[in-house]
């Protein structure tokens, strides 16, 4: 078995990561480790730096210092357009569906970054709604369908590290449930997932570990089995 296949293989490690937008110092030394096949959440209030953490991994912030290791490779000096090529799929909070492209064009847009991605047929199997609406303009879809599309789009590329930002935000419970099923399927396929979530009840049963963020730092790391004991801490920071 090669080291890349071992369960404790480090897919992502952030060490003392600082991020800046212009003069604003947003992240103050983040340390995160995600092993292959893990589903890890970043919990925290709005403005705690969770989205910025994902954007910093993608090299989409103004400036960053520290270390971002992806698949064992330091990426601090890797240009933004080459991060995806390391097997990273990013689903932004605003979903980023392109209005000038139809559903299928949106699906086909991100280039393949690794072998082993889902085929168009498999994706349409997983999201039948997208098949029915494949010729519609991307932004004509409902919010839930757009979220499915934003997810499906990065599954096609073969990315094995998914960074998902607030995928349940503003969606109906039935759609949220569907997304939960999809995440379980992806986890079973062995994909590594970092999930930024507001909806703790959605994230709790899916995740292996949780990182709790506040003011651009990690304030607590919680294993799934410790959740019950640490509800007080969560309540303090999240107000759930």
């Amino acid at each position: 078995m090669t080291s890349a296949n071992r369960a404790d293989y480090e897919q992502l490690r952030l060490a003392d990561l600082h991020a800046f937008y212009g003069e604003s110092h947003i992240l103050h030394g983040i340390d995160i480790k995600v092993n292959r096949g893990e589903l890890v959440t970043l919990l925290g209030r709005n403005g705690s730096g969770r989205t910025t953490t994902l954007r910093a991994i993608m090299n989409m912030v103004g400036k960053r210092t520290g270390s971002v290791m992806i698949n064992g490779r330091e990426t601090l000096d890797v240009p933004a357009h080459q991060i995806a090529r390391l097997g990273v799929g990013y689903c932004p909070e605003e979903r980023g569906i392109f209005a000038s492209l139809n559903v299928e064009e949106n699906l086909m847009l991100p280039p393949t970054v690794r072998s082993g991605g889902m085929s168009l047929d498999e994706i349409y199997d997983m999201f039948p709604n997208l098949y029915e609406r494949r010729t519609s303009q991307g932004t004509r879809l409902s919010g839930g369908e757009q979220q499915m599309l934003a997810m499906a789009r990065i599954l096609r590329t073969g990315a094995n590290l998914l960074l998902l930002d607030e995928i349940t935000e503003g969606l109906a419970p039935v759609i949220v449930q569907k997304l939960g099923e999809v995440l379980t399927q992806l986890k079973n396929k062995g994909l590594t997932i970092v999930l930024v979530e507001q909806n703790f009840r959605f994230a709790a049963p899916l995740a292996d570990r949780h990182y709790l963020m506040e003011h651009g730092t990690i304030v607590e790391e919680i294993q799934a089995h410790e959740l019950q004991d640490k509800m007080d801490i969560l309540n303090t920071y999240l107000g759930v």
Binding site: A80, A84, P92, G96, A99, S100, L101, P111
Partner: peptide, 15 residues
């Protein structure tokens, strides 16, 4: 067309 709309996301996709 996509680059015209959202170049930053296109970069994140590896373009």
């Amino acid at each position: 067309r996509a680059g015209t709309e959202n170049p930053q996301l296109m970069q994140a996709f590896g373009i």
